[in-house]
């Protein structure tokens, strides 16, 4: 009887120690769901969803404060991926937050730029280079096309230009065959 009790108590202590150790050692920081949602979002940081960036939107989705159809740059495929992740039904994009547009980059008209730095402060990914009273320019490869720099410009010298098709980003088409009417 005593031996059985001691064995059980010993086991309980040993397993408890293992559990306690692993809860400290393998502690998960933050909510892994937020990171998973954030990984699906396109990271344009445009704020069209109503939150100041992709991470806050991901947090809002995870806590149930926001719906999954508020991200126009992610488009329908993004909504579908979020629905798959969260186990809910996909729904069409909410037009209140905007509609998907072709991917574009901001271009500064360097003749008009007065060097006010307002766009530099607005850029969420530090993709605009310049200094006060000096011309600014957009680093095209870093630009996410969020359009946040367009509104603050006092001289309207920033325009969004769609990225065209080049040999670099050209893709093979899905095979489509013309249906011919039989004679």
């Amino acid at each position: 009887m005593l031996i059985a009790l001691l064995v059980m108590a010993g086991l309980a202590l040993a397993l408890g120690a293992v559990l306690g150790y692993s809860s400290i050692k393998f502690k998960v920081d933050g909510d892994p769901l937020v990171d998973k949602i954030d990984a699906i979002l396109p990271q344009t940081q445009c704020g069209q969803c109503g939150f100041p960036g992709c991470k806050p939107y991901a947090q809002a989705i995870a806590s149930g404060e926001a719906d999954i159809n508020q991200c126009p740059p992610g488009g329908e495929p993004g909504v579908k991926a979020l629905a798959d992740l969260l186990g809910v039904e996909p729904k069409p994009l909410n037009a209140e937050h905007g509609t998907p547009k072709p991917k574009s980059v901001a271009v500064i008209d360097e003749n008009t730029c007065i060097g006010c730095t307002l766009c530099i402060q607005a850029c969420p990914v530090d993709a605009i280079l310049g200094a006060a009273k000096h011309m600014h320019t957009v680093i095209a490869s870093e630009c996410t096309g969020c359009e946040l720099c367009v509104a603050p410009c006092p001289v309207d010298c920033i325009s969004m230009q769609p990225i065209g098709e080049h040999v670099d980003n050209w893709k093979w088409r899905y095979p489509v065959f013309e249906i011919k009417q039989a004679a």
Binding site: P42, Q43, C54, K55, V125, E142, N169, W170, K171, Y174
Partner: peptide
């Protein structure tokens, strides 16, 4: 033709993913 289509789609997606990761990193840094 189907394989070429699928390959270039996957390559484009991977590139977009890479760009998104870069944007996330830059945003967090900012």
């Amino acid at each position: 033709q189907y394989y070429r289509f699928a390959k270039s789609e996957i390559i484009a997606q991977d590139k977009a993913k890479e760009a998104a990761n870069l944007a996330r990193e830059r945003n967090e840094f900012r």
